[in-house]
Design a protein around this nucleic acid. Structure first.
Lengths: 322, 322
DNA sequence: GTGCATATGCTCAGGATGAGCATAGAAGGG
DNA sequence: CCCTTCTATGCTCATCCTGAGCATATGCAC
């Protein structure tokens, strides 16, 4: 179908998510950039082998299991990244690197090999509002940091609107789903190490360090991929019961709530959350209790038949606190 | 990043949507399959030229404008299709054909070249519930057609659940967003011409025609791509104000409602729709009136500042009728 | 003016949502 | 044993959203 055969390399990237206690984790590897230099965090990746892999996600499952010993359950395609300047190697005559990124949800498990689980809020400290407004915000980009204001100031009104919507400034509300918009805005404003690195590598001149903590960087555009995943997942739990992919077969309502809070990064009202999921038919009690430190909690399970009853069953806008 | 260079061809597909009066249209071309045979409907497609196109969507815009003279406004990446058996040519030793599909929304315009606009419900007659339950459903797959029931009958319970959810059987509700699930189910049940064609081409034996009208077929897996687009668009108008990409700068509320109905395929309650969009801050009156055949209607425009005020502004679940 | 067609305004019942008060059941310290 | 502490669970209330219907306004054709 493609007329001339373009010089394209196709890879697959995996954002593999698990939640342990109240911390959402992603699987990362360490990678030394081809240009040398210190090792960087990276998302697991692998090639598509057309001879082996009948479909893209089979390819993904194949090498993820090979590399990490982890069998994947829920897998969903996220986005395909094909920008010219995602890999500096291309500017030296390399092929265009196109990556299809996938989101995978797993229950916590140990992983072999050099992969390791990391708190995803290490990469996005400004996304965690569970204990109130994150400190990173005020140090990085809030009213205090002049960088973002400066970036807005000179520019046309559209830029201010973007910043307001993305970061909930000027009376706008903080929308947990806009993870990618926030990441891209910080990148454009040169507040992220990756942005400064890419600029240097393109030879567009260096930008001074600002010394502000702007989260842990990753190789290439992997943090952008991660932001895409986080935003998508936050959106999805609202209308599809994907949370249960991260939980054991039975769980207490507090466990469920904790996982949802970990994902959305916002605190929830306990009683209303209970009403939402129980009265909303999303879960059903098993009758069994479990010790908790206080009054014993009932164990619940996902109620599959909710899929037939409600059009978009998920942990919707409801039960929000503050 | 990809280890060995896989034999992969990368193409771009465009689902270009416009709405004229009350009919949603997509831009199609005619294509003679490489194997010969009669021409088939196809989505516009083109290659990615890594030397020319800094990003994927720039590549898309480039050749769409070249081929059709149509400048694209709103463009959104949909999904990447890379199954082994999407192109029969691969089984004869061709490279794996991977296509990144995009959704584009345009205001109606004339198109040069051999492209032409077609009602998208030609391809999915069962998706149009604006004038009640579509007849195609009852002739194709409803209680009347034994095919789907037969497909369900022998199989494990999971299959019945899928069918119930996708088609709103057995007490479940019809969810307009599940376009792709319905398409894939019909495909698996061999009720679509494409399914029978692909099966023949894979040499797995022929399936008799059922003679039932199951919508206009397309080449390769293009109807699947189209189903993805339709489902995505239906979902998106609920939480993002994308409808306005399809409308002129000012419009009457009936025009707006008609476009929304065309997309979702469901009728809306007029007064409630008005309340939803006006009282919800999505549009604002301009003060100007326009002739309509009855009482003159006021012209409205999209109210940009709603983006700051509400977290997910769109034509949400509200205003549904029946 | 009459009838028709579309636009616009208003009300009402039921359900969802955000918030808080109150009680239940277990563990542990004095 | 009583009291405190901890978590779970139940219930109420005000507010807003949603689905539905009734009523009125304003143009046009005849």
């Amino acid at each position: 179908m493609a007329a001339g055969a373009p010089r394209v390399d196709l890879g697959l990237n995996a954002v593999i998510v698990a939640v342990t206690e109240e911390v959402p984790r992603i699987l990362t590897i360490r990678r030394t950039p081809p240009s040398g230099g210190p090792a960087e965090d990276a998302l697991p990746f692998g090639p598509l082998e057309p001879e082996l892999d009948r479909t893209l996600d089979r390819g993904l499952r194949r090498w993820v299991t090979e590399q990490t010993g982890l069998p994947l359950g829920y897998v969903e395609q996220l986005y395909t990244f094909g920008d010219g300047n995602r890999d500096p190697a291309e500017s030296h005559g390399g092929p265009r690197l196109v990556s299809v990124a996938y989101l995978a949800l797993v229950r916590e498990a140990s992983v072999k090999g050099e992969a390791s689980w990391r708190d995803w809020y290490d990469y996005f400290p400004w996304e965690d509002w569970r204990r109130g407004r994150p400190r990173a915000l005020d140090r990085d980009i809030g009213d205090i940091a002049p960088a973002l204001e400066a970036w807005i100031a000179g520019a046309p009104e559209a830029r201010r609107e973007r910043a307001d919507i993305a970061f909930g400034l000027g009376g706008a509300h903080w929308d947990p789903d806009r993870v990618l918009e926030r990441y891209e805005l910080l990148y454009e404003a040169l507040l992220l190490p990756e942005a400064r690195r890419d600029r240097r590598e393109r030879g567009e001149g260096a930008v001074p360090e600002d010394g502000l903590p702007s989260g842990r960087p990753m190789t290439l555009d992997h943090r952008r991929i991660l932001a895409t995943a986080l935003g998508r997942l936050r959106g999805k739990i609202r209308y599809r019961p994907v949370v249960f992919e991260l939980l054991p077969a039975t769980f207490t309502l507090l466990q469920l709530q904790t996982v949802v809070e970990a994902l959305t990064g916002t605190p929830l009202h306990k009683q209303n959350f209970r009403r939402l999921v129980e009265h909303g038919g999303l879960v059903e009690g098993t009758g069994k209790d479990v010790r908790t430190g206080g009054r014993p909690a009932e164990l619940f399970r996902f109620r599959r038949s909710v899929l037939r009853e409600r059009p978009a069953p998920g942990v919707g806008r409801g039960a929000l606190k503050a």
